[in-house]
Structure formats: structure tokens, C-alpha cells
Nucleic acid binder design. Sequence first.
DNA 1: CGGGCGGATCACACGGTCGTAGTTTCACGG
DNA 2: CCGTGAAACTACGACCGTGTGATCCGCCCG
Lengths: 153, 153
Amino acid sequence: MDEGFSGKRAAEIVGITYRQLDYWARTDLIRPSLADARGSGSRRRYSYRDLLELKVIKTLLDAGIKLESVRAAFAYLRENLGEDVASVQLVISGGSAVLVRDGAELIDVVNRYRGQGVLNFLALDDVKDQLDDAIELHPAPAPRRGPRTATGS
Amino acid sequence: MDEGFSGKRAAEIVGITYRQLDYWARTDLIRPSLADARGSGSRRRYSYRDLLELKVIKTLLDAGIKLESVRAAFAYLRENLGEDVASVQLVISGGSAVLVRDGAELIDVVNRYRGQGVLNFLALDDVKDQLDDAIELHPAPAPRRGPRTATGS
DNA sequence: CGGGCGGATCACACGGTCGTAGTTTCACGG
DNA sequence: CCGTGAAACTACGACCGTGTGATCCGCCCG
């Protein structure tokens, strides 16, 4: 069953610590959608989509956004984000979020939000690209048997 | 000497707690430029410009940006920010920051930063306006004079 | 010169992160 | 079908940053 990604691998791919992944799962920020933990020894299974969200979260965190804020944005986002993700830009303002498609729309949003405080801007398709690269880079665990899985380097 | 603003008043005007202001001063995020504390009993004196920075910080905080990040951005900004402030947008990316003047420039920045992560936008002139309003709203302490403080109840 | 404003200090809370040791389960080989 | 070992989830404690409240203390101003 190598559907999806193990917790460990997920963490490696998106570049966070395992403890972080664990904490986020426990505190309900994001839990593995293929298989959640049900006690010690069980295995979490993250979907590709999960990884994408994880990577977005990590990116927001790296940008200095508080986890608390990320939670709020995602709560909102989960209801409004379709499958598109590509060529879309995420704009977060405080606890809410919007998706924007092109520059004109961006300017529009910026102007509409005048005086509302800070806008956070993130290009989701870039995140996707980076995630794909990272997946490539982190080999699936070799089946514990085969003499030479012959992945030819 | 009612040059500038006392710590208490500064806090009230920008809408933070006095303890926060104190904490920020002691941890070197921002200290009063007119008169710093030099031991118990002394008085801090904040300039208008200080208030502006305080307000920007508060706005960033409200937007869910980590104080740590704010520290980094300000360290950078202090060297690069002239007196302008009006009709300028502050753009923060991770630890560094840029100032942008119009929509076209904004789009430019957005494109240049593709793949660099998250951008945070803040319209500084709005902050200034809000600060000015707030100052208006918070009267200078009445010279403690007349027998009738008589502000009724 | 005396009272009060406000800075100093200390203890504590809370969220997020991390390390380590413990425990459970899964998958494989026999 | 069972034993076994590694994978990986869990528990627990520690630490750091960011405050907060209480209380002490000293300077300044009227």
C-alpha cells in the first residue's frame, strides 16, 4: 500500500520537522486525509493535496505569519478553494482570504482593502511547482526486500 | 515640556497596552527617540515618528505577522526609509522590505518575487491617517490645574 | 517637599517547537 | 500462522518568545 505519503516522508518533502507535522495533526490544523492516526503504531497517510496544503502552510510560516493566522485563513479557505490551485494567487487579510487570478484583479483587491490593514500575497502555482520538485527529490522508501530496486541512480 | 508623547499616551493612541510598549522598548524593537528610560522614575518621550512606527508595528501584528518578523523588517527599513511615508506601500518579504509607489510598480514587484514566498502589503499613508485621527481623539492630558477637574462623572 | 506617574523587576501563562523514551502495529520471513 | 524488528505514533518535559499583572521604587513637578 504505497498510496499517499507517510508522516515522515511528508515532513521531509515539505521541509518541516516531524514534530511539527504531528503537532499540526493533533491540533487539527491539518490531518492526513487518507489515513489518520488511531493510536500509537498506526500510520498516517497524507494525500498529494495534503502535501500541497502543508507546503502552503510552511511557506506562510516562513514568511513570518503566525500559526494562529494560518489556521484562520485555512478554515476559511477550505470552503472556498476548488481544485484549481494553478495560476491562482492567495490573498489573506487578517482572518479571511481571497483568490485572485491576474494583476488587474490584484490591484483591484489592493485598492478595495485600503485602510483594512495588511494583505498577504502568495502565488499558489509556485508552491505547487516547488512541491513537485521536492517530491521528485525525496525517493519513495525502497521496498525493504529487493536486492537492488534498480532505480538506476 | 510637552514635546512628544508619554509612554502611556503613546500606548493609548496606537492602541496597544502599556506593557507591550514597555516590552518593545526593553527588547529593543522600538525605543522612544526623544527620551529613553534611564532607570526607575525617569520618563520616556515618544516622537510623532515613533508613533507612526508603533502604529505600523501594531498593524502588522494585527495582521498575524510574527513580532520576530516585524523586528527583522524594521531593522532593514530603518536604514532605507526616508521621510516620505505618504502614498507609499510597504512590501515585506521574509526579513526584507521594499517601498512601492503605484500599481504598476506593485505588479512589477509581485512578478519579480515569484517563487520567493509570501509578500505582505501595507499602505503606509493609511496608517498615517489613522494615527492622526487617533491623536485627535486622545486629548493631551489636561494641565492638572483648576480645582474643577469637573469632567462630570 | 510630597504625591503620583511611570519605569523596573519578578513570577507566571500560553502557544509553538523540539528531543527522547515508550508503545503499538504492521509486514515480512520462516 | 506466529515471531520479530523496524517504522512511526504518543507522552512528557523543556525551552523560547511574547506578553501580562502585581508590586516595588525613584524621579519629577506642582
